[in-house]
Simulated scan of single mutants.
Amino acid sequence: MISTTKLAISGLFVFLLALSTMSTAHEIRPAIIDLTLDENGSYSIDIQTSVETYLAGIGPDVTDTNNAPQAAEYDRYRAMSEQELMPVFNAFAPDLIRGIQLQADGLDINLAEPNLTLTSEPDLELAREAVITFTGTLPVGSSSLNWQWDEQFGGSALRVSSATGQEVYTEYLQPGVATGPFDITGAVKQSGFSIFANYLVIGFEHILPKGLDHILFVVGLFLLSSRIKPLLWQVSSFTLAHTVTLALGMLGIVTIPAAIVEPLIALSIVYVCVENLWSRNLSKWRPAVIFGFGLLHGLGFASVLTEIGLSPNHFITGLVGFNIGVELGQLTVIALCFLAVGVWFRNKAWYRSYITNPASIAIALMAGWWVFERTVYGV
């Protein structure tokens, strides 16, 4: 009876891990919205996104298109050339326009028909980015703007700037959330606290729920020992390292292509979990190894921030907010691991055999597949 109970607990934990390790090859990322304002009142809105998710009707509750009921339709659109996709997009454009609200001083701006540009050739193994462009002119004397788009289009990072590149406003928006009015005359500056809070959310969400590889790395650290001291040594080493490379990456001092960094991040997960199988305690070299892996993960974090963009006027504030958000996400993962198995079973004689080893094997196998996938097919 005891053996059956132990097997059930072990199987449940591995099953939960397996659910969280679905392939991220078709991960849905937030849209990047660049709103550029000219002195003469004209504007341009460039929305960088995966347009096929909208065409297939995949909502923000889905994090990976492979798991969506519309996965086949999504893949069919991704296989189309720009010329083939254009009629489908044109038919969808009125729905997109209805889902966007742009206001100047509280008055609605009627958007013209958008233009679509695909930035890469069809490849079912890779996410394909597109740019949706709106252009128009604001009413004379406009001093503030509001932006919102429908919840069905998911989260977004809004970046507002002048035609000369001067930052006006930046914010990460949850699905369906409006900005509220923001000044475009330069008279009112965006507060540092709002920047900090915004990037804290971005950092947390990059771990939970979107950072599956980072989640599994932290779980791998937990699995070696559910004791606080060994875990703190590992997490502290990891934190120090990724803080360093996150800053260096954002400053442009260290730049390594994602095609190199992402397979190595997956390989770091494999190493940690394989070591869990033959090491029962924290070895003297493990914190140093974890520090090295933290440098890699920091470069991964930097690529996310580079894509979204940090506010030049609040660079340090945004960087600190993002890093704290990442840390809160990692601590939440550790807390969930303790609640799931650590608190209840860590003192059991069978904990290693039925929790640590099966879970480490499952994670190592999934991460090994990621190494292959990211090396052969790219990020």
Score class of each variant (00 low, 15 high):
Trp147Phe: 15
Lys189Ser: 13
Gly368Thr: 07
Glu171Asn: 07
Gln190Ser: 10
Gly155His: 08
Ile9Cys: 11
Asp75Tyr: 13
Gly180Arg: 00
Pro358Asp: 05
His214Glu: 09
Ser303Leu: 08
Val261Met: 01
Tyr377Glu: 05
Ile9Gln: 05
Gly329Lys: 06
Leu365Gln: 03
Val379Lys: 06
Pro175Ser: 05
Ile58Cys: 05
Gly192Lys: 08
Ile2Phe: 12
Ala187Phe: 08
Val140Ser: 12
Trp233Gln: 12
Val289Tyr: 05
Gln148Asn: 07
Gly211Arg: 10
Ala266Asp: 12
Asn276Asp: 08
Leu246Lys: 02
Ile260Gln: 07
Glu151Pro: 04
Ile100Val: 12
Leu116Gln: 01
Trp149Lys: 06
Gly321Ile: 15
Ser161Gln: 14
Ser120Glu: 09
Ala178Arg: 03
Thr179Glu: 09
Ile316Ala: 15
Gly176Trp: 07
Leu248Trp: 02
Phe153Trp: 10
Asn281Ile: 01
Asn115Gly: 03
Pro30Ile: 01
Val333Asn: 00
Ile45Ala: 07
Pro60Lys: 00
Val177Gln: 06
Glu129Cys: 00
Thr4Trp: 08
Leu305Gln: 02
Phe89Arg: 05
Ala258Ser: 15
Ser50Val: 11
Trp350Lys: 06
Leu240Phe: 14
Asn66Ala: 14
Met1Pro: 13
Ser10Ala: 15
Ile195Leu: 04
Thr117Trp: 02
Pro263Gly: 10
Gly318Trp: 07
Ala259Gly: 03
Pro230Gly: 09
Asp108Val: 13
Thr375Ala: 08
Val219Lys: 02
Gly41Trp: 04
Leu7Trp: 09
Ser353Asn: 03
Thr21Ile: 06
Val88Gln: 10
Pro69Gln: 09
Leu138Tyr: 04
Ile290Pro: 02
Gly41Pro: 07
Gly59Ala: 04
Asn40Glu: 12
Met366Asn: 13
Met1Glu: 12
Ile334Asn: 08
Met366Ala: 15
Gly136Thr: 05
Ala157Asn: 12
His206Gln: 05
Asn66His: 12
Asp105Glu: 07
Leu118Cys: 07
Asn357Ile: 15
Gly41Phe: 02
Ala79Phe: 01
Ile28Arg: 15
Gly136Arg: 04
Pro312Val: 12
